[in-house]
Design a protein around this nucleic acid. Sequence first.
DNA 1: CGGGGCTCCTGTGCGC
DNA 2: TGCGCACAGGAGCCCC
Length: 280
Amino acid sequence: MNQKRKLNKLNYYNMPELPEVETIKRELEKVIIGKRVTDVIINNAKVIREPKKEKFVADLKNVVIKKMIRRGKLLIFELSSGKSLTIHLKMTGQLIYPGDGRLSRVSFELSDGKLLDFNDNRLFGELRIVDDWQKLKFIKELGPEPFDIDAEKFKEMLANKKTKIKVLIMDQKIISGIGNLYANEALFRARIYPERLANHLSDKEKELLFKEIKNTLSEAIQYKGSSVDQYVQVSGKPGEYARYHKVYDREGESCFRCKEKIKRISLGGRGTYFCPSCQK
DNA sequence: CGGGGCTCCTGTGCGC
DNA sequence: TGCGCACAGGAGCCCC
């Protein structure tokens, strides 16, 4: 059943997490920094969270994109006006350059005459223009990036948490950038069962998990992300990392380590994949 | 503090 | 063949 579903899939599925957003940032900054926004075409204003669409357009017209920054899964475009455009891709957001505007919710026309398309078929994405992105609630509450802390700090963060470990590492307020896919993969690699309570992990397990989170994320960045759902690179090409997934979306298939069948449970409403034999 | 459930939304894959 | 419906899921929010 799962096999069949995969075979029938014609498009690429999955939500952008840290590696996907980082890939988009690296590619996009090579081609849009220093360019001016000449026009903004809004095909669906739902994705514009602030300010109102007329002001959104006015705030962007004729400003230059100075710098791109990523914080967790959030992309930030610093503008010559001093304001910033922030984009959260959520589930199905895509940034395509050069775009053709056909599927876009919002297209930005740049001074080179080309379009930067924001596509998002589920309309969960969020575009904002803010005076100071550092004052955004999402940013202020965001936990540190896995690459910005050491194992000691990670252990400390888990110490008093009675939350299930998978739910905890997906909590952006605790640690930023990890979503469902990489949480599943990192736990498999660390051989930790996703429902274990964070404060019950041994120091060794915490250290291993921290290491595997960073390994998984950096490998995924190397391969330009995972295209299981709608994530694609800026060029429209899928990322290459999905072929290295060990558990995600592999329910009923054999574990690469022990041949046991991969199981799927639901944790916090999210599909959770693990090997019942290797993950304790 | 922790957990569960709902909301936003639409393509999809299923059952009938 | 086609209709209708459940499902997926990041993050915010509400309630127990």
